[in-house]
Protein backbone atom coordinates (compact mmCIF):
# COMPACT_ATOMS: atom_id res chain seq x y z
CA UNK A 1 0.00 0.00 0.00
CA UNK A 2 1.68 3.23 -1.07
CA UNK A 3 2.30 5.72 1.70
CA UNK A 4 0.11 8.80 2.18
CA UNK A 5 1.81 11.94 0.90
CA UNK A 6 1.06 13.87 4.04
CA UNK A 7 2.77 11.36 6.30
CA UNK A 8 5.64 11.23 3.84
CA UNK A 9 6.10 15.01 3.92
CA UNK A 10 6.12 14.91 7.70
CA UNK A 11 8.70 12.14 7.70
CA UNK A 12 10.86 13.90 5.11
CA UNK A 13 10.78 17.07 7.17
CA UNK A 14 11.97 15.03 10.13
CA UNK A 15 15.10 13.66 8.41
CA UNK A 16 15.96 16.56 6.09
CA UNK A 17 14.29 19.68 7.47
CA UNK A 18 16.06 22.18 5.23
CA UNK A 19 16.34 20.22 2.00
CA UNK A 20 14.26 21.26 -1.00
CA UNK A 21 12.53 18.64 -3.10
CA UNK A 22 15.22 19.15 -5.73
CA UNK A 23 17.97 18.47 -3.18
CA UNK A 24 16.24 15.32 -1.98
CA UNK A 25 15.90 14.04 -5.52
CA UNK A 26 19.50 14.78 -6.37
CA UNK A 27 20.90 13.13 -3.26
CA UNK A 28 18.67 10.05 -3.47
CA UNK A 29 18.77 9.61 -7.22
CA UNK A 30 14.99 9.77 -7.65
CA UNK A 31 13.67 11.48 -10.75
CA UNK A 32 12.03 14.77 -9.87
CA UNK A 33 9.04 14.08 -12.07
CA UNK A 34 8.54 10.71 -10.38
CA UNK A 35 8.47 12.17 -6.90
CA UNK A 36 6.31 15.09 -8.00
CA UNK A 37 3.81 12.70 -9.53
CA UNK A 38 3.70 10.55 -6.42
CA UNK A 39 3.12 13.62 -4.25
CA UNK A 40 0.37 14.93 -6.52
CA UNK A 41 -1.40 11.59 -6.44
CA UNK A 42 -1.02 11.51 -2.70
CA UNK A 43 0.61 8.07 -2.83
CA UNK A 44 4.32 7.74 -2.30
CA UNK A 45 6.00 4.48 -3.25
CA UNK A 46 7.87 2.50 -0.61
CA UNK A 47 10.96 2.49 -2.86
CA UNK A 48 11.02 6.29 -2.65
CA UNK A 49 11.21 6.18 1.14
CA UNK A 50 13.90 3.49 0.96
CA UNK A 51 16.05 5.48 -1.49
CA UNK A 52 15.76 8.69 0.52
CA UNK A 53 16.50 6.88 3.77
CA UNK A 54 19.66 5.40 2.30
CA UNK A 55 20.73 8.78 0.94
CA UNK A 56 20.36 10.39 4.38
CA UNK A 57 21.91 7.52 6.31
CA UNK A 58 18.67 6.40 7.92
CA UNK A 59 17.81 2.71 8.18
CA UNK A 60 15.03 2.15 5.61
CA UNK A 61 13.29 -0.42 7.79
CA UNK A 62 12.95 1.96 10.70
CA UNK A 63 11.94 4.70 8.25
CA UNK A 64 9.14 2.50 6.86
CA UNK A 65 8.18 1.49 10.39
CA UNK A 66 7.28 5.11 11.03
CA UNK A 67 4.36 4.80 8.62
CA UNK A 68 1.15 3.32 9.86
CA UNK A 69 0.91 0.55 7.27
CA UNK A 70 4.39 -0.66 8.17
CA UNK A 71 4.33 -0.19 11.94
CA UNK A 72 4.86 -3.95 12.29
CA UNK A 73 8.45 -3.41 11.14
CA UNK A 74 9.16 -1.62 14.41
CA UNK A 75 9.16 -4.97 16.20
CA UNK A 76 12.13 -6.76 14.64
CA UNK A 77 12.22 -10.53 14.70
CA UNK A 78 15.19 -12.62 13.65
CA UNK A 79 14.73 -14.57 10.42
CA UNK A 80 14.05 -18.29 10.65
CA UNK A 81 16.53 -20.78 9.25
CA UNK A 82 14.17 -21.66 6.40
CA UNK A 83 13.92 -18.03 5.40
CA UNK A 84 17.68 -17.61 5.46
CA UNK A 85 18.24 -20.68 3.32
CA UNK A 86 15.52 -19.58 0.89
CA UNK A 87 17.57 -16.47 0.18
CA UNK A 88 20.56 -18.51 -1.00
CA UNK A 89 20.64 -18.70 -4.78
CA UNK A 90 20.27 -22.06 -6.50
CA UNK A 91 23.86 -22.10 -7.86
CA UNK A 92 25.20 -21.36 -4.34
CA UNK A 93 23.01 -24.12 -2.93
CA UNK A 94 24.26 -26.60 -5.52
CA UNK A 95 27.85 -25.67 -4.77
CA UNK A 96 27.13 -26.28 -1.09
CA UNK A 97 25.75 -29.73 -1.92
CA UNK A 98 28.91 -30.63 -3.80
CA UNK A 99 31.08 -29.45 -0.93
CA UNK A 100 29.46 -31.98 1.43
CA UNK A 101 31.59 -35.09 1.86
CA UNK A 102 28.47 -37.25 2.02
CA UNK A 103 27.64 -36.21 -1.53
CA UNK A 104 31.14 -36.09 -2.97
CA UNK A 105 33.51 -38.21 -0.85
CA UNK A 106 36.47 -37.19 -2.99
CA UNK A 107 35.96 -33.64 -1.72
CA UNK A 108 36.82 -32.00 -5.00
CA UNK A 109 34.82 -28.83 -4.35
CA UNK A 110 36.27 -27.93 -0.99
CA UNK A 111 36.67 -24.22 -1.70
CA UNK A 112 33.70 -22.14 -0.63
CA UNK A 113 33.20 -18.84 -2.39
CA UNK A 114 31.09 -16.33 -0.42
CA UNK A 115 27.34 -16.51 -1.04
CA UNK A 116 26.01 -14.02 -3.56
CA UNK A 117 23.83 -11.40 -1.86
CA UNK A 118 20.03 -11.73 -1.68
CA UNK A 119 17.77 -11.45 -3.56
CA UNK A 120 18.34 -14.09 -6.25
CA UNK A 121 16.45 -15.10 -9.40
CA UNK A 122 13.69 -17.00 -7.58
CA UNK A 123 14.00 -15.55 -4.10
CA UNK A 124 10.38 -14.44 -3.73
CA UNK A 125 8.89 -17.81 -4.60
CA UNK A 126 11.48 -19.66 -2.51
CA UNK A 127 10.81 -17.41 0.46
CA UNK A 128 7.06 -18.02 0.33
CA UNK A 129 7.61 -21.76 -0.14
CA UNK A 130 9.96 -21.76 2.85
CA UNK A 131 7.37 -20.31 5.22
CA UNK A 132 4.27 -21.89 3.64
CA UNK A 133 2.41 -24.37 5.81
CA UNK A 134 0.15 -25.29 2.90
CA UNK A 135 -2.58 -22.75 3.62
CA UNK A 136 -0.49 -19.59 3.57
CA UNK A 137 -1.52 -18.39 0.12
CA UNK A 138 -5.20 -18.71 0.97
CA UNK A 139 -4.73 -16.78 4.18
CA UNK A 140 -2.84 -14.00 2.41
CA UNK A 141 -5.55 -13.81 -0.25
CA UNK A 142 -8.27 -13.67 2.34
CA UNK A 143 -6.45 -11.03 4.39
CA UNK A 144 -5.54 -8.72 1.52
CA UNK A 145 -8.29 -9.37 -1.02
CA UNK A 146 -5.68 -10.08 -3.69
CA UNK A 147 -6.87 -12.91 -5.93
CA UNK A 148 -4.81 -16.11 -5.55
CA UNK A 149 -3.86 -16.14 -9.23
CA UNK A 150 -2.56 -12.56 -9.04
CA UNK A 151 -0.55 -13.46 -5.96
CA UNK A 152 0.89 -16.51 -7.73
CA UNK A 153 1.68 -14.42 -10.79
CA UNK A 154 3.75 -12.06 -8.65
CA UNK A 155 5.66 -14.96 -7.09
CA UNK A 156 6.39 -16.49 -10.49
CA UNK A 157 7.64 -13.14 -11.78
CA UNK A 158 9.87 -12.89 -8.68
CA UNK A 159 8.02 -9.78 -7.57
CA UNK A 160 6.15 -9.05 -4.38
CA UNK A 161 4.62 -5.71 -3.48
CA UNK A 162 5.75 -4.47 -0.05
CA UNK A 163 2.18 -4.60 1.17
CA UNK A 164 1.84 -8.27 0.19
CA UNK A 165 5.27 -9.03 1.62
CA UNK A 166 4.20 -7.75 5.04
CA UNK A 167 0.84 -9.52 4.81
CA UNK A 168 2.61 -12.77 3.93
CA UNK A 169 5.00 -12.51 6.89
CA UNK A 170 2.11 -11.74 9.17
CA UNK A 171 0.05 -14.67 7.88
CA UNK A 172 3.01 -17.02 8.26
CA UNK A 173 3.93 -15.75 11.70
CA UNK A 174 7.54 -14.91 10.79
CA UNK A 175 9.52 -11.68 11.15
CA UNK A 176 8.05 -8.81 9.14
CA UNK A 177 11.11 -7.90 7.05
CA UNK A 178 11.79 -11.24 5.31
CA UNK A 179 9.56 -10.58 2.33
CA UNK A 180 11.06 -7.14 1.81
CA UNK A 181 14.51 -8.72 1.61
CA UNK A 182 13.28 -11.44 -0.76
CA UNK A 183 11.68 -8.88 -3.07
CA UNK A 184 14.84 -6.78 -3.00
CA UNK A 185 13.32 -3.67 -1.44
CA UNK A 186 15.83 -3.76 1.42
CA UNK A 187 19.11 -5.58 1.99
CA UNK A 188 19.76 -8.29 4.53
CA UNK A 189 21.88 -5.92 6.59
CA UNK A 190 19.12 -3.31 6.62
CA UNK A 191 16.71 -5.97 7.83
CA UNK A 192 19.07 -6.67 10.71
CA UNK A 193 20.23 -10.08 9.52
CA UNK A 194 23.77 -10.81 10.78
CA UNK A 195 26.27 -10.79 7.88
CA UNK A 196 26.96 -14.52 8.04
CA UNK A 197 23.43 -15.58 8.96
CA UNK A 198 22.71 -17.29 5.65
CA UNK A 199 26.05 -19.09 5.59
CA UNK A 200 25.54 -20.27 9.17
CA UNK A 201 22.04 -21.49 8.36
CA UNK A 202 23.40 -23.31 5.33
CA UNK A 203 26.17 -24.95 7.33
CA UNK A 204 23.61 -26.07 9.88
CA UNK A 205 21.51 -27.94 7.32
CA UNK A 206 21.93 -31.71 7.51
CA UNK A 207 23.21 -33.36 4.31
CA UNK A 208 19.89 -35.01 3.54
CA UNK A 209 17.82 -31.89 3.96
CA UNK A 210 20.23 -29.77 1.93
CA UNK A 211 20.35 -32.29 -0.89
CA UNK A 212 16.57 -32.65 -1.01
CA UNK A 213 16.15 -28.88 -1.03
CA UNK A 214 18.69 -28.53 -3.83
CA UNK A 215 16.82 -31.24 -5.70
CA UNK A 216 13.56 -29.30 -5.39
CA UNK A 217 15.27 -26.18 -6.64
CA UNK A 218 16.78 -28.04 -9.59
CA UNK A 219 13.40 -29.48 -10.48
CA UNK A 220 11.80 -26.03 -10.40
CA UNK A 221 14.66 -24.64 -12.48
CA UNK A 222 14.26 -27.47 -14.96
CA UNK A 223 10.56 -26.72 -15.29
CA UNK A 224 11.22 -23.02 -15.88
CA UNK A 225 13.89 -23.75 -18.47
CA UNK A 226 11.69 -26.26 -20.23
CA UNK A 227 8.87 -23.74 -20.42
CA UNK A 228 11.25 -21.08 -21.74
CA UNK A 229 12.57 -23.48 -24.35
CA UNK A 230 9.06 -24.44 -25.35
CA UNK A 231 8.05 -20.78 -25.66
CA UNK A 232 11.18 -20.04 -27.64
CA UNK A 233 10.46 -22.93 -29.98
CA UNK A 234 6.92 -21.74 -30.49
CA UNK A 235 8.08 -18.17 -31.06
CA UNK A 236 10.58 -19.35 -33.65
CA UNK A 237 7.88 -21.33 -35.37
CA UNK A 238 5.60 -18.31 -35.44
CA UNK A 239 8.37 -16.18 -36.91
CA UNK A 240 9.25 -18.84 -39.42
CA UNK A 241 5.66 -18.96 -40.65
CA UNK A 242 4.54 -15.38 -40.18
CA UNK A 243 7.70 -13.29 -39.91
Amino acid sequence: MPLPAKAFQRWLHGIAPDASTADVCRVSGIKRTTLAQQLVRGKVAETTVVSISRAYGVNPVSALAGFEAYSLLAVPAPPTRCELVSQISTPDLLRAVLSRSAVDPAGRSAERPPLSPAPHATSVKNWVEAIDDGELRHRVSAATGVAPQNYSAQLTANRLSPELAIATSLAAGVGPAGGLVASGLITEAEAGWPPDARQTALDGLPDGELTTLAGDRLQALGKTLKRQEHDQEQTNKIWENLG
Binding site: L221, L225, Q228, E229, Q232, T235, N236, I238, W239, L242, G243
Partner: peptide, 18 residues
Protein backbone atom coordinates in the same frame (compact mmCIF):
# COMPACT_ATOMS: atom_id res chain seq x y z
CA UNK B 1 4.52 -10.42 -35.74
CA UNK B 2 6.72 -9.48 -38.63
CA UNK B 3 7.88 -6.29 -36.88
CA UNK B 4 8.63 -8.27 -33.73
CA UNK B 5 10.76 -10.64 -35.75
CA UNK B 6 12.67 -7.79 -37.34
CA UNK B 7 13.13 -6.26 -33.89
CA UNK B 8 14.01 -9.33 -31.80
CA UNK B 9 14.35 -12.29 -34.08
CA UNK B 10 17.52 -11.62 -36.04
CA UNK B 11 19.84 -13.31 -33.58
CA UNK B 12 18.71 -16.87 -33.02
CA UNK B 13 20.69 -16.94 -29.73
CA UNK B 14 18.69 -18.48 -26.93
CA UNK B 15 18.79 -17.29 -23.37
CA UNK B 16 21.52 -19.08 -21.44
CA UNK B 17 20.52 -22.57 -20.45
CA UNK B 18 22.10 -25.04 -18.11
Amino acid sequence: IWAARVRYGRSPARPGTF
